[in-house]
């Protein structure tokens, strides 16, 4: 059988050329495929990276805006401002003689401030999976080489 194949190639040389061509094409396709996967992953990682930077900037801007708005609110409701506004609106301070005290069941006076925020910080790993940041080589190393070296 082996002899038959050899003889067939000797009789028709283009069969050998065709075989080489096929092997080269398969190799080229394989390399192209790897390159395509690599480029695709890299471009996605780049886009994700840029988006991440964008959102980080947006987040820090939001933090700054919140701080500014909170301060603005405090400025317009400050003790001095409120007194001035009350005077402008014609309000006057009432003396104790004009008070009526009464017991309201369940009312314990002005409550103390409770300012604890409600959200907890999320860890980095929950936001970005390694697939977005590692290269294909990192992935192969992490998946195959490193586990093997642990044994």
């Amino acid at each position: 059988m082996k002899k038959g194949w050899s003889q067939a190639y000797k009789i028709v040389p283009w069969r050998g050329q065709l075989q080489w061509l096929g092997i080269m094409t398969v190799a080229l396709v394989a390399v192209s495929l790897v390159a395509w996967v690599y480029l695709s992953v890299s471009s996605k990682a780049s886009i994700a990276g840029r988006e991440l930077q964008f959102y980080q900037n947006k987040k820090s801007n939001a933090i700054e805006s919140i701080a500014q708005l909170e301060t603005d609110l405090a400025l317009v409701t400050s003790s001095t401002e409120m007194s001035l506004r009350a005077k402008k609106l014609g309000f006057k301070q009432v003396g104790p003689s004009r008070f009526t005290y009464m017991v309201i069941p369940g009312y314990g006076g002005k409550p103390a401030a409770e300012l604890a925020p409600y959200t907890l910080t999320r860890t980095q790993n929950e936001v970005i999976t390694p697939g977005f940041t590692q290269s294909i080589w990192d992935w192969m190393y992490g998946s195959f080489v490193q586990p093997a070296s642990e044994y």
């Binding site: 990682a45 990276g49 930077q53 980080q56 980095q124 940041t133």
Partner: peptide, 26 residues
Amino acid sequence: PNHVDEIPDLPPGSDLILTIDREVQS
């Protein structure tokens, strides 16, 4: 950009609530 990493969430400094009452202080 391939190496962009998330900047760790840095907790803000602690907020303090004082015993003073703004109206009483004023």
